[in-house]
């Protein structure tokens, strides 16, 4: 298991939620693959993403966003910004709920966690842009 992971989220059957899946396809076709970075398909997992986050130093989530950017623009969110969207527990409890609970679930220090996202149905330029930004952050962090 690598210290860094890019975890792609989404539903490839819903165009507006397929960004993570399309970025996963893009990144896993690149050759040679970046050393020391796991590229993972997180599907629609919620709390079950915890096992993919544990014992990492850096995690970059890739997912579609809604209401946070102009259509086609790319955004980068911190763990705290994502966690701020956590509501009550439900069967669809997802990434915000997990990241809100993470300090209580995970031994300190927490991994550096960011989310790279974009809004709208992803096209080829958007997929490439998000993929490249995700890998840049995975290698160098956000600093």
């Amino acid at each position: 298991m690598a210290n860094t992971a890019v975890i792609c989220l989404g539903n490839r059957f819903i165009a507006g939620d397929a960004l993570g899946c399309r970025v996963y396809d893009y990144l896993t076709r690149i050759s040679p693959r970046a050393a020391g970075i796991d590229i993972l398909d997180g599907g629609l997992c919620g709390l079950d993403l915890l096992r993919l986050v544990e014992h990492r130093q850096r995690v970059v989530f890739v997912d579609a966003v809604a209401g946070l950017a102009e259509s086609g623009a790319t955004v980068v969110l911190s763990r705290a910004q994502i966690a701020a969207h956590a509501g009550g527990y439900g069967h669809g409890a997802g990434l915000p709920y997990l990241l809100q609970l993470l300090p209580a679930l995970h031994p300190l220090p927490l991994p550096e966690i960011v989310l790279v996202g974009s809004e709208g149905e992803p096209d080829a330029p958007m997929i490439r842009q998000v993929a490249e930004l995700s890998m840049e952050i995975a290698v160098h962090g956000t600093c």
Binding site: D63, V65, P96
Partner: peptide, 16 residues
Amino acid sequence: VCTVHVVGADTTPLRC
């Protein structure tokens, strides 16, 4: 979610 047999913009799951 199991029971009722495209959800509008106001209920789009927002994972971030």
